[in-house]
Every structure is written in structure tokens, then in C-alpha cells.
Design a binder for these strands. Sequence first.
DNA 1: CTGAAAGCGCTTACAG
DNA 2: CTGAAAGCGCTTACAG
Lengths: 340, 340
Amino acid sequence: MKKEVVTLKKLSQILDLSTSTVSRALNDHPDISAATKEKVKNLAKKMHYVPNIFAKGFRQHKTNIIGVIVPNITHYFTTTMVRGILEEAAIKGYRVIISESNNDIAKQTEMLNTMLQFGVDGMLVSLTKMTREIDDVLETLNKLPLILFDKVSSKIPCTQVTINDEQAAFDAVEHLINIGKKRIAIIKEQDFSYTSQKRFAGYLRALKENNIEVDEKLIMSVDDITLENGKQMTSHLLSIKHPPDAIFAITDSAAVGVIQTLKKFNIKIPETIAVVGFSNSRLSTVIEPNLTTIDQPGETIGKNAVKHLIEEIETKSVTISNKMIEIKGALIIRDSTFKA
Amino acid sequence: MKKEVVTLKKLSQILDLSTSTVSRALNDHPDISAATKEKVKNLAKKMHYVPNIFAKGFRQHKTNIIGVIVPNITHYFTTTMVRGILEEAAIKGYRVIISESNNDIAKQTEMLNTMLQFGVDGMLVSLTKMTREIDDVLETLNKLPLILFDKVSSKIPCTQVTINDEQAAFDAVEHLINIGKKRIAIIKEQDFSYTSQKRFAGYLRALKENNIEVDEKLIMSVDDITLENGKQMTSHLLSIKHPPDAIFAITDSAAVGVIQTLKKFNIKIPETIAVVGFSNSRLSTVIEPNLTTIDQPGETIGKNAVKHLIEEIETKSVTISNKMIEIKGALIIRDSTFKA
DNA sequence: CTGAAAGCGCTTACAG
DNA sequence: CTGAAAGCGCTTACAG
């Protein structure tokens, strides 16, 4: 199965040069004459020489591998970020190792450790929902460059790349206000979720700036922001004394559940109750009426995260960089609300 | 940034043993006394010793990395396979490097090569659609264990894991026949797509076994089986002299396009035209009417592929294994057809 | 401009 | 049961 492998040594024997020279020629070292370089490179190409990355990495304490941890790889939005990460990393000559934490803190910790042991040059982490428990991330951060993306936490002192959740949520809710809605419900996650917190903050600010009073009865918090929970919360919202005239679900999945339930009860969308989601997932143009939502540029987020990580890896700056990079999300208005 | 790292040497100095002994103790070599083992292991744990995987891999010509290449990582079905791969690989102590070929032959070739150079122990490949050009895959197969999954090709002599496309398509079409449909159209890809070929074969067999004549006018072939193409082909099918009374689209996306177009023309589903898709994607329960489709157990496929690959890696058997593993898909009947 | 030699951290055949 | 030594394939400070 294993075919004989071409090494530096073999090349050097054939060319009657030392391995040092061959190595330097291949790496374009300025000391080497142009003639030698060409000779070496030609032979290398002819013999399909590929450097043994492990010997190289071992020698240089560098693996050119980036570790990525995401909570759930089956989310469409996550895959768009992953795509951006893969693309940008490939361009810069890095490989990517991906793991899924399944929103499980213990699993996340285990992954941080195995990636560490594996010798990745840096890590890109999208946190589990339990952002309270960040000790292990902090510890990892002490050992190598680490950047948070998408699911981030202000409690971790490192560069973070995310969409501007607060502003995007603000835009979504203000849009509802602009089309005349006054009793706007929100379906969000519990407060441990940083993303949910920020979107909720945007919701509150939009109400406040438009002098609409907050009604606690319209604020639904669930453990897990799924389609199913979207349905349940909607049923509940329909049963209260003064039901809402709009529902802002902080994910598209949940918003789809909202719409399905409203339709079940023959409630007019958006006339009686308007609906806004968040993500611009593929579901949003299949559900009827099509869902007004926030488009999140996943690829851009992924690429940005990689760029900053590689910068930190390659500059090896001891200064801890702690940038907050916010990528803009855009409100996309569809039939589940009105054009203002 | 870099903290002092604990090596075998350091441990051996502290314990006043040779590195050989420490190495063997850590690896549970039978020669080492239980007492020594315990002493060594305790210290290793206390000092948070982690072996340098690169030194190890370099030494043993083994990296414990599996390379994965998929055409498109944003497809939901693909992510479920990836999830299965990650899970199973982690259990067996392997890491996974993922790349996306974007259905581009040149990119796939490039990825095969960089993964090779990267020293992966084996590869899991889901082919681009252009399965005609397989030279590079064949060449890679000569150098290390490689297994095809999902998008496979009978022309490549290696183990392949896929769902039983032919039978699943047969079941789907026979279901249409059972509910009384006689003019069943298919929307498929061009013949270079192996998956499409197999599903088409199932379609043909179902017609044949039920004595239904094939009508070439009902066979639509597109370059790319997208939602948009599903729409276009449906418009076309509606315009022909004798339109179909059922449409089998070989992916859910296309089937969604079919349904959207039929609804636009106020055609009753399933009474006038029934629709079947393939994949059981999330769209299938959001589109209305809900889509009858084939459920593909992605995680099972992923896990199976990893299992077989690791077996090949670890047995290093020179015998080329060439198993065809077919995972069963299941027909899920929803409102876009009738219960038989 | 080129080469000899050391060393990265580990494993393992050989010796005792 | 333990150790000394070689070697995996590369890079690089040192020497010339």
C-alpha cells in the first residue's frame, strides 16, 4: 500500500547536494543561487516531492491547523460560517479541524483539550449556550490564540466576531412598530444565552425609543429555541387576555413554528399578527407567508474570524487583542410583515 | 504566550528514569512493572503531560487524522453525515479534517493532494457530480485507505457506503403507482451523476414491474437539481400535451420548487398532481402540503463510513476491500401524496 | 554560496 | 524489568 516516499535526503543524493541546501532552495532562502534553486525545484516537481508536514510542524512547533468548535453543525447558518472558515483558511494555507459540542459544556471542554493536545495553532470557538461556565475557555486562551465567533461572551477577553445582534433585533422590532404594531411579543431563550440577551436588548431599546411600554406577559423565554417551542409559546400567547399583534422570534425555526400555529388558528398574517424571525434560513422562503427576517452573512463572519486568528497566530504578539468585530445583518422584509 | 511544555524528558528527569521507560510506562508496555507504571502515570497526570502528537505521528507515520471531502457542506443531509463521522471518529480517537469541493473537479483534486501531503491516515470522499473524471481519486486510492460515501462511483474499486438509492426510488415511484398515478414524471440530473442514475434506475424498474410505459416527455434532466430548476421543469411539464399526474423529484429542494409552481397554477396536490421528493430535509415539513419523501439516515451513513475506514487503516490489509454497503432509506408518506 | 551537525519529542530494536 | 542509542524528516545556527 505504502509507496516509497520522496524525501529531502533522496533529492539531495540525486543532486549531489546537502539536504541543507535542498531545504533552503525549496524554501527560497536568499543565500542560495538562482541556478541551484531552479535545479532543485525542477527535480522536486518531477519526483512529486511533498514535504512531510509532520516533520516540519514538529520541527517548527507549528501545525498550520486551526481547530473549530461549534455547538451544532447541522444548522444551516453554521454551515455557511464553516464554509467561510474553510475557504479563508485554505487560502492562507491552513487546515481546519471541526468538532461539535452539541451545546454540552463537558463536551466542549473535552474538545478544547484534545485540540490543544493535537497541537492546533489556534482555535475558533462558537460557545455553547451555557456561557456562564467559561473557565476552560479562559484556560485555553492562556495557551494559544483563540477567537470567539457567533456565540460569543463579553466575559472572555479575546477577539470576537459576531453579527450586530442588538442592532439587528432593534431594526426588526422597529420595523414592526413602523407598520403599526403596538403589542409586540418576543420569543427568546433564557438569560444564560448571550445571543438571546443581545437580541432581547435590541427589542427593549426599540420599544423604549418608541415609547412603547414593556409588557412582561409578551416576553416568552424558552430553554431551547426550537420550532416546537415556537408553536407552544404561540399557543400560549394566543390564550392570554390581550394577545400580541406581532411576534418576534429570535430564530427562524421558532418563527416557522409561530406561523404554523397562527395558521392553525386561522389568524391572519400579518394583518392580525405579524411575524419576524432571525437568520434568513432556507425555511424562511418556503414557509407561507414568507418570513421577514434578518440575513446573517455567515461566510463573512467565518472569513473574518479566520483572518483575525491567523493574524494573531502569525504575529505572536504578546499583547492580548480584544477586538469586537460586528458584521452587519440586514433586515429582509417579506410577507409575514408589511412593507412600511 | 507559550508556556513551558512538559515532555517525556522532563518527566524522566524528575523520576530519575530513562525516557524509554517513561514512554513505555505511559503506553502500558507489558515489560514495565506495575509500580513504575503507577508512579509515572501519576506524575504525568499531576503535571498535565500531553504527548506531542506531532512527534508521535512523525515517528510512527500515523496522524490519527481522517480527511473528509464533501461537495457542499451547507446541505442539511451532508451535515447529518458529517455529524455521524465526527462522532464515530472521536470515539475511535481520530480527528477529522473537512474540505468542500463545491462540486468542482479541480478543487477536489487539489484537496486530495493537500490532504495526502498533510499526512491523513485515510480519506472519506463524497464525489463531485462529475464522476467520469476519477483518475485522481484512483491515484489517491493507491496511496492510502479511501472510502466513498453518499456520492459514490462503481468505477472506483473501494468500499462504498451509500443509501440504497435504487430501491428507495423504486419504493417512491411504486407508492405513486399504488395511489393510482399513471403518468409519473421524474426530475433528475444528467447521466454523469451516479446518484441520479441509480434513482432513475429505480424509477424505470418501478414503471416496468407495473407495466407502465416510459414516456420520454416525462423525463426531465437538469444540470443542477435545484429548487429553481424544479420550478422551471414543472412549468415545462404543465405545458406539454399530456401533463403528468405525479412528479418525482430526486431531491427535496427540487420537489419544493415543484410544489410552489403547482400552487402558483392552482393545481391540486395530490389530487391532480402528486409530488415526491428525496432526503427528508427540514423543508419537507415546512412546505405545504408537507412533502412525501425518502428519509436518508445521514448519521448512520457517516458512522458506517468511518468504521470501515478505520478498519482498513488499522488492519493495513493489502487486500483491497471493495464492499458495497447500502443503508436503507425509508419512504415517509405525507400530504403531497395519499396514503395508499 | 554550501555543508556538517544538532535537535525538535517521541518510539523501539537491541542489549543487559 | 530498565536503559542507551538510533532514527523518523525536516530546519537552522554555525562554520567556512
